[in-house]
Structure formats: structure tokens, C-alpha cells
């Protein structure tokens, strides 16, 4: 193995070691958490709770309002999709036609 290859392998080992250590640290004092929760919850909130800086509920907690949150999310996604798609088409979609 050449010297650059050895150096690259060593770097990879360090990265994997740090990753393993970090995952272990983040999952310390494990409580079961839902699968595929966001990193906001899985990492940030868990570490903050352990450090005594627990997050508080949002001031406007739409997540606790059942399907209202779904409505907001789907509505926002639809509006964003329309805005992006419509203006993308008008600005970038008509080569030689649009002003």
C-alpha cells in the first residue's frame, strides 16, 4: 500500500471512529424513539435534555392539532410546488420565447 493510500485509509478510520463515538454519545441514556424521527429530535433535543436545556413546546403547536398540521403541510407543499413550477417554467422553460 502506498503512503497516500495509507494516509487516506487512516483518515477514513478516524472518521468512522468519530462517527461511531458520536452515535454512541447521541444514543446514550437511550429512550425508545420513533423510527425515522428527525435529527432535530434524535440528536439536538436529546442532547439538550441531557444537558438540562430541554426544549419547550412551540408557541403555536400545530403538530398537536391533529389533521390541521397535515392540512398546513400539504397546503404549503402545494403552494410551493405551484410557485416553483409555474415561475420556473416561465423564467427558464421557454428558450427563446420568454422575455
Amino acid at each position: 500500500m502506498t503512503r497516500p493510500a495509507r494516509a487516506a485509509a487512516a483518515r477514513l478510520l478516524v472518521i468512522f471512529g468519530m462517527t461511531a463515538a458520536g452515535c454512541f454519545a447521541a444514543s446514550a441514556e437511550d429512550a425508545p424513539r420513533p423510527a425515522f424521527s428527525g435529527m432535530d429530535e434524535a440528536v439536538n433535543e436529546r442532547m439538550a435534555e441531557n444537558a438540562g436545556a430541554a426544549p419547550r413546546s412551540p408557541y403555536i403547536d400545530t403538530e398537536s392539532l391533529g389533521d390541521i398540521w397535515n392540512m398546513l403541510l400539504l397546503g404549503a407543499g402545494g403552494i410551493c410546488g405551484f410557485v416553483i413550477g409555474r415561475w420556473w417554467h416561465l423564467l427558464f422553460g421557454n428558450r427563446g420565447k420568454a422575455e
Partner: peptide
């Protein structure tokens, strides 16, 4: 924070390794 588990560098290693 009131009850830090690590130093700043310790937190950085833990956080970045969990993000990566």
C-alpha cells in the same frame, strides 16, 4: 447549559459524528 455533559470540543465531536 446548567448540566453540560461534555466540553465544547466534546460536544462538537459528538454532534458532528451523529450528524454525519
Amino acid at each position: 447549559s446548567p448540566n453540560p455533559q461534555y466540553s465544547l470540543s466534546g460536544y462538537l465531536v459528538a454532534i458532528y459524528s451523529a450528524y454525519l
